[in-house]
Write a protein that binds this DNA or RNA. Structure first.
Lengths: 149, 149
DNA sequence: GAAAAGCCGAGTAATATACTTGGGATTGGG
DNA sequence: CCCAATCCCAAGTATATTACTCGGCTTTTC
């Protein structure tokens, strides 16, 4: 039941991007340095995020990434699901195209997997990047951030 | 964020065992056949469950396993955590000996991981094997069960 | 005493993860 | 106009994990 580095790194990087939202596009290189993540690996994560419509890219020198919407419109859930796929604990209860199971009729454990899925989704869908920025400012109690996330 | 077969098979097997609770000890062979799980693999899972005090074994011919407590006292959470380890989505928020992180101070994403952990635990700790048996009887609407779980 | 069960440790094939590598395309600044 | 910075993309790879299998021992009933 662990999240992979995709979700963990991806969310950290997205929060970093959100914190720098007002500065225009931000290069992956700078995010990678601040968050101590492989830049090449981050590229792969941002390719997914871009295709999901969560970030926009600006190519060329001085290019980078920007949030596609305001931080208050981007939920943690949309980021995690983009990167990790469904957060369902078992494939048979994935939101889209659930895996077929020959014993699905009268399957009792499925009820549990659905409850877990829904409760995880409820948590992550209720938190936006804006919320995290607020928490971040509170925790670090300063205006020039330490960039530690 | 997927559960492994340990958790999935283990819970199915435990529910099977609970359904046959009144019949005394049940052999892994019969559970393996009904649930279509490798018997050798089930052995490993039940070794864990036994060491966790969730089931008791009876050795020798005609031996098998029995629930260590009544189905109403065994939660899905205790079974899943025994088999899967902590259900925390990230090691830094495991209930016991959380992984140390050099950026733990002011870490914002950690708040999310804790919320996910707690909500998953709340779900699985609120469901007992007894609850599942009840659901099972309701879904299958008969007294001699199909044993499909 | 033989068969049926649990117990145990080691081995292994397949899969997934977490990257790295090497290049190509685009664009701003000198 | 070139070049460095940056995004873009596909493929390769080392490591770890998963999901088992295998072989043999121990205990107990019939």
């Amino acid at each position: 039941m662990k999240l992979s580095t995709k979700g963990r790194y991806g969310l950290k990087a997205m929060l970093d991007l959100a914190i720098h939202h007002s500065e225009g596009q931000i290069s992956l290189k700078s995010i990678a340095e601040r968050q101590d993540i492989s830049e090449n690996y981050l590229e792969q994560l941002f390719a997914i995020l871009r295709k999901s419509g969560i970030v926009k890219s600006i190519r060329g020198s001085q290019g980078g990434y920007v949030l596609a919407q305001g931080p208050d419109s981007i939920t943690v859930g949309s980021i995690l699901r983009a990167l990790e796929g469904s957060l369902a604990p078992v494939d048979c209860v994935m939101e889209t195209e659930p895996a077929q199971c020959n014993r699905a009729e009268g399957c009792v454990t499925k009820l549990i997997w659905k409850k877990i899925r829904d409760s995880v989704n409820d948590v992550v869908d209720s938190i936006t990047l804006e919320d995290l920025i607020t928490e971040y400012k509170k925790a670090n109690n300063k205006d020039d951030y330490m960039y530690y996330i």
